[in-house]
Design a protein around this nucleic acid. Sequence first.
DNA 1: TGCAAATGGTTTCATATGTAACTATAACGG
DNA 2: CCGTTATAGTTACATATGAAACCATTTGCA
Lengths: 166, 166
Amino acid sequence: MKPFARNTVKVSTPRKPAPATAEHAPLQLERFLPYRLSILSNTISQAIADDYQRRYDISVTEWRVMAVLARFEGLSAREVAERTAMDKVAVSRALARLVEAGRVSRVTHDDDKRRSVLGLTEAGWTMHDEVAPMARAREREVLAKLDAEERAWLNRILDKLQPIER
Amino acid sequence: MKPFARNTVKVSTPRKPAPATAEHAPLQLERFLPYRLSILSNTISQAIADDYQRRYDISVTEWRVMAVLARFEGLSAREVAERTAMDKVAVSRALARLVEAGRVSRVTHDDDKRRSVLGLTEAGWTMHDEVAPMARAREREVLAKLDAEERAWLNRILDKLQPIER
DNA sequence: TGCAAATGGTTTCATATGTAACTATAACGG
DNA sequence: CCGTTATAGTTACATATGAAACCATTTGCA
């Protein structure tokens, strides 16, 4: 494999597949499931996050923590970690910021002083009630690209690829 | 003390949805598309990356750059960025490591000295030829959870949600 | 021409994230 | 009981990542 492309021809806009394709069987990235999922996931998450990140100075991880606390009252940090699929360090940090910002309340558990008991504050609820509808609206926008049948299949497929635990 | 006389509510294992649910309409995270995609994407990417990261000391972004260079010879950094959907800083850094490691060759373009002309080296190809089949195998494992019909729908859905440009 | 604007790419800095170590408390086994 | 082990959570450190500033070169056009 000599780099004979040294000087000559059309180096300018090399759109052609590499010659070695046949022998090397390179990955077709844009057809590769993990890659596609990663792009799609980032695109969508970012679009939604843009909506609230600037406005409320909150990160995706913090928002997820809040979303979980909106549904389940009095969770411990570990339980939040479970439900958000984040690791406990990430949760700890998100909580630090959220408590600091006055959006989450934290007291220590009566019977187990290691645990904390978490919940949204007034301010937390207020923000939640503004962000949640935005997030849902964005989700609808994305799903609007699909028809009902496709949406059904998507759900089914996601369920199979990743069984929701609990 | 009397375990009975717990005056506070039962903070012990709060599995019940928060009482405020009705008025606040909290997000059901585990049914929320962006969240599910993010989890799924991370799970899968991580599983695959684990295969080669340790073994070759290479990151996902570096691998993606290599995969693109395996298919398209002589790309510039900017073109790599386009095709990997990474930003140019990330590409620049990945390339620095790859060139350093002797896996990618870089020369400056003859007609435009700003550009670089990139390609895999011998060592790069060797590694590529070991990693690519692994990645494909992993993808197959994931897709094996679906039947043929579901796989077809998945493809169709991904195409609609995220048209492949170019 | 010549000079402002655009482009390819790298560097810098601030922030995010993951791993491992650490602190405090609780549970367990003899 | 008492010492070991496990668990909840935080801190420290090292690495990754993104935005903006930056350098070099090329392009557009008066």
